[in-house]
């Protein structure tokens, strides 16, 4: 499978995402923010970092880059798009995902490991995560507090669009386990069509035991499986 990893000025997790995809046996290449085409692509990763210096609001400027117009079209055609950290912020600013990410409730930048509970396995981003498995992955953000109004939240719940929630080691969704004040401990969501997802934690930094955890690989394995099913379906 071919992954396109976007590269904005001040992206800083782009190489990590490329590394993770290659490590797990697939190909990935970087796509510059000024490119208006994604080329031959099976899935897109919008990586973490501080695109355009986080000026105005995180992700606000990146949204208007030529490459994001191509990503919008790719998503509209059903292509799989995963936004990680700043990538999640970019996708919400672009209107590809509902809600917004605001300043952490304690105003501090959090760089630590968190535990994630998978709220639904019914998505191309979660299907391969073992049942009951609590993922241990790192976060590194100052503006990761997910916010959505009551109406949007109700819709997210009704459509099972909440994919991951912050929890304690035992899988309990406690306030203490919520690093940033996100509503309902939300760490990641998908769109209604379930082909675009975003999360604040960094699965690409947790794909090999050398780095302390390889739990992040389950998210990538889910994407690989979804792409494989798609290819099989297209051939049939």
């Amino acid at each position: 499978m071919n992954f396109s990893v976007l590269q904005f000025p001040a992206s800083n997790c782009d190489q990590d995402a490329v590394h993770a995809v290659r490590l797990l046996g697939h190909s990935a290449r970087l796509v510059w923010h000024k490119d208006a085409s994604l080329g031959d692509t099976d899935a897109v990763i919008v990586p973490g970092g501080f695109s355009y210096g986080d000026y105005l609001r995180c992700g606000a400027i990146a949204r208007f880059s030529p490459v994001m117009q191509a990503v919008k079209q790719f998503a509209d055609n059903g292509g799989l798009v995963l936004g990680i950290c700043n990538g999640f912020q970019v996708l919400t600013e672009a209107g590809l995902l509902p809600g917004a990410l605001i300043r952490n409730r304690d105003l501090q930048f959090h760089c630590e490991n968190v535990f994630l509970k998978t709220a639904t396995h019914d998505s191309p981003f979660t299907s391969r995560i073992p049942a009951e498995k609590i993922l241990r992955v790192p976060i590194a953000h100052g503006e990761g507090c997910y916010f959505a109004d009551t109406e949007t939240l109700a819709k997210l719940k009704a459509n099972h669009q909440i994919l991951w929630q912050y929890c304690d080691q035992g899988g309990n969704l406690t306030d203490a386990a919520n690093p940033n004040g996100a509503v309902q401990n939300i760490a990641g969501i998908c769109n209604e069509k379930r082909n675009v997802a975003g999360l604040m934690p960094h699965p690409e930094r947790a794909c090999e035991s050398l780095l302390g955890s390889d739990d992040g690989k389950w998210i990538f394995e889910s994407i690989f499986a979804a792409l494989k099913n798609k290819t099989v379906a297209a051939r049939a």
């Binding site: 605001i102 300043r103 952490n104 409730r105 304690d106 105003l107 507090c145 916010f147 109004d149 009551t150 004040g181």
Partner: peptide, 14 residues
């Protein structure tokens, strides 16, 4: 300005 329903930790701290 932040909407009323949105957390404003900076405002609270000040």
């Amino acid at each position: 300005t932040p909407k009323k329903a949105v957390l404003d930790p900076q405002g609270k701290t000040v």
